[in-house]
Amino acid sequence: MLEALMQFRHRRFRRDLSAYVDDMLSERARRRLEAHLDSCEACRQELAELRVTVEALGSLPMAEAPRSFTLAAAPVAEVRPRPAARRLEFGLRLATATAAFALALVLIGDFAGLPGGGDEEEEWVRGELYSATRATPAAMEAAPVGTPEPAGIADMPPVVATPTPAAVRVVPTETPAAEETPPAPEAAPVEEPAISADVSEEEPSEKAALEGAGVEDEGQADGAEAQAVDEEDEGGGLSREEAVRWLEIGLGAGVGALVILWAVARFRRSIGNRP
């Protein structure tokens, strides 16, 4: 027990030896250490070695500077990114990533065939071609009766062929309704997804033509009436598609405006923080 206490005191005095060399002990601590040194050979030895070490370190020569380090010109002010600027940088990156993600969503939506998607435009073209080709045999059948127009319509390009449904509708007057109804589901999605500018421009005239056709065909076969109703629905689809498009544009513009507003606000704040 006494041995352990002595060891503890010895370790504590050893710790003070360095400060004792530099005369940095308080008067009381110095007197205690000196009393201990009188009775502790190991500490005296260690103190002597410590003094030699300090002396050896002090004997290290100071080298001459290899050249002058004077400055020829005042150094340019340090350009360290300020914390606010660093946060701004992160925020801009985040905003860019968000905008890119939103754009990706819109593109995926387009290609996945969601309302307003480009694929549906292709559907429309295919539908038109299909209805036109379906119409051709009917027109051939009708030809002997003296209605040759639909044959020519089949050769028309899809966009220009907008009157095709009307032409198809003319045909049932000569043929059984059962034969004419199948193209209707094909033709139904025809105009709804149309999104290209060309098609949109033609929409009013097309719609008018369709409506006109519907009015003209009111007294005709049931199948034709159903088709006319479908075509009216197509008019509603067009407005929905428009709405989706404007929604997309609005969302894009909104995100962009938010990013710009946020960036301006951050810049103002960072400028305001400057001393």
Binding site: M62, A63, A65, P66, S68, F69, L71
Partner: peptide, 21 residues
């Protein structure tokens, strides 16, 4: 800058030696 260079000349040896060690 001249005043600063006077300080540089006064302390360059110490600074260099610290870096050297």
């Amino acid at each position: 800058l001249d005043a600063f260079n006077t300080l540089v000349q006064a302390y360059q040896r110490q600074v260099y030696n610290l870096c050297l060690r």
